[in-house]
Design a protein around this nucleic acid. Structure first.
Length: 571
DNA sequence: GCCGTTTTCGGCCCGACTGTTTTCAGTCG
């Protein structure tokens, strides 16, 4: 079974135990394990095969290791099946409804026999919820609304979508008289590939009407909560936005707190506790006399627990606190380190703009070089080039290059990796290229072994420089194909092939955690936009964010090199 | 259920808002 499936099993266990009123810390253990497993770069199955002790993974102890082993060897988890025998199948689904937690779900089942979303809807419509302790007619209204939203399938949003709404909202709130400072926090600030909601922090003058204005924002569909320090709305697109108003003296503590991640915060607070301190969103306090020590600046929080500043992108409790403690935090790559873009498409295949138009755009951006990398013939829908077509196209690139000053155009291609691992174009034409990207665009549903063999065979071709979007996933749309990344990264290292972090916001492929493993295995990376228009060349930042989340430094990335060094490297 | 250079037992982050309550439990982040 894939990691995702195993993580889902532990989430299901946690949900049922939660409803059953189990020790909340035991519940949390299962949830933590599920999260950890989803973040792994390697399948648990292959980890077991190579003899690794799963208990070395933080958050996985004896009990969960045994369950993983059972799931992998039998495909089932006995414990979950036992739990499911006690609890109606639809019950855990109710937890997904906003405003319903384990206690209410339990009461609904015990007292009204509600065990599914449909039955809950009927009970609420019939006005039967108000008979329960702690519930009233407002609860019924909220439940019906939650069901409607749930059915509409509102979930997470791509980071790039978050950027669009965040920018517009910040512009709007900035205009409110008395607003002194605004910062987005949360997973948006950590640049996570998807965001569940948008958190905005504010400092305001006394009497500022920021909350009144916020809930009147033009795209507000629903006001979820409105208070003096915290308000929440849902926008028409379904995105929830929270605004929090804070005092200047505690702003840093709040910024840290609301940036998260939750796991990072727990670890920081745990550490504070050991030092006799208490950290909350209001500041750093002495545990004994509750006296306030600091908290105006975000740095204060780290200083209080004896650590240097940790960049938001690293705050996932993936070892950043230990690294900070040992002075081993990476010097994360920045957008300004990028000197060129090594994947883009033109009108020769499925791009919107010509070679010259792409070149003009990157001149504005100040790049030293770009590679033009159109598709090969296997990608029919994109009008991929055959050998002859590519030969003509390479000449065209040379012609345009002769007319363009200030930026060097590299001749490239994104050649398809066919089902058997051979390449879609002959070697002699690939040799004409400065950069050859290889990529999978078909037959996604192979078995892991077959897919791994296919990709590694392609990497062995000495003409291949970069493996493009190595897992093929589309965020929120398509799962990655099954492939043993550890073996692929090893092959990439052995054959000197660079691994791409595709910056296109729907891809971000490699993922953050995968890029980190690639780096740790010694492989080099390239961050490329895969732009299909001139405007999309600006998407580079999303690739850089992903790289930063993967602990990547400028020296790990080949398109931070000056042109001459890049050439040397590619040869 | 996990974890440990104070611990192998006894901890496990902390506060705002809501709705239904007369002082708080539940949910959320």
């Amino acid at each position: 079974m894939e990691n995702k499936g195993i993580a889902d099993i532990f989430t299901a266990i946690a949900d049922i135990l939660d409803i059953e009123g189990e020790n909340p810390f035991r519940v949390r253990s299962y949830r933590n394990a599920a999260r950890t497993i989803e973040d792994l770069s390697q399948s648990l199955e292959s980890m077991i095969k190579t003899g690794m002790n799963l208990e070395e993974i933080p958050g996985i102890g004896k009990s969960i290791r045994e369950k993983i082993e059972e799931i992998i060897s039998t495909g089932k988890c006995h414990f979950l099946e036992e739990l499911r025998a006690q609890v109606p199948a639809g019950l855990t689904e109710l937890l997904k409804l906003e405003g319903l937690g384990p206690k209410k779900v339990k009461a609904l089942q015990d007292q009204l026999g509600v065990d599914s979303v449909d039955r809950l809807e009927k009970a609420a419509q019939a006005g039967r919820l108000r008979n329960l302790a702690g519930m009233g007619s407002r609860t019924e209204e909220k439940v019906l609304k939650s069901i409607e939203k749930y059915r509409a399938g509102m979930g997470r949003f791509k980071l790039s979508v978050g950027f669009i709404y965040a920018q517009a909202l910040l512009e709007y709130l900035k205009e409110v008289p008395g607003v002194r400072r605004l910062d987005p926090a949360g997973s948006f600030r950590r640049r996570k590939e998807t965001i569940g909601d948008l958190d905005i922090l504010a400092i305001c003058a006394k009497g500022c009407r920021v909350m009144d204005r916020f809930v009147k924002y033009g795209e507000t569909a629903e006001i979820i909560a409105k208070g003096e320090t915290k308000s929440s709305v849902r926008l028409q697109c379904g995105l929830q936005v929270d605004v929090r108003v804070l005092e200047e003296e505690s702003y840093g503590a709040a910024l840290h707190y609301f940036t998260g991640s939750k796991a990072h915060n727990v670890a920081i607070r745990d550490r504070a506790k050991e030092l006799g301190l208490k950290i909350s969103e209001y500041g750093v306090f002495d545990s004994k006399d509750e006296k306030r020590i600091s908290g105006a600046k975000e740095e204060d929080i780290f200083k209080a627990v004896g650590l240097p500043f940790i960049p938001p992108e690293l705050r996932e409790d993936r070892g950043e606190i230990q690294a900070a403690e040992q002075g081993k935090l990476p010097r994360l790559i920045e957008l300004s380190d990028i000197r060129g873009d090594l994947q883009m498409h033109t009108t020769a295949t499925d791009g919107k703009h010509s070679i010259a138009e792409m070149a003009e755009k990157v001149k504005e951006m100040g790049y030293a070089y770009i590679a033009i990398t159109d598709h090969s013939k296997a990608v029919r829908v994109a009008g991929g080039l055959d050998e002859k077509g590519l030969a003509r196209h390479l000449k065209e690139i040379d012609k345009v290059a002769a007319q363009v000053t200030g930026v060097r155009l590299l001749k490239g291609v994104e050649v398809d990796i066919l089902a058997d691992g051979s390449l879609d174009l002959k070697d002699d034409i690939l040799q004409e290229c400065d950069v050859v990207l290889a990529a999978v665009h078909s037959r996604f549903n192979m078995e892991e072994k077959e897919m791994t063999r296919r990709i590694i065979k392609a990497l062995k071709n000495p003409n291949v420089n970069i493996l493009a979007h190595p897992t093929g996933r589309l965020i929120l749309e398509r799962e990655a194909y099954k492939v043993n990344l550890k073996e692929v990264f090893q092959a990439a290292f052995d054959y000197g092939v660079v691994l791409e972090i595709n910056a296109y916001p729907d891809r971000l492929d490699l993922r953050d955690v995968d890029a980190r493993m690639a780096k740790e295995m010694g492989a080099k990376l390239a961050i490329s936009t895969d732009a299909h228009s001139a405007a999309q060349l600006e998407l580079m930042r999303f690739g850089v964010y992903t790289a930063r989340r993967g602990w990547i430094e400028a020296k790990d990335v080949i398109n931070t090199l000056p042109l001459e060094e890049l050439f040397k490297f590619l040869r």
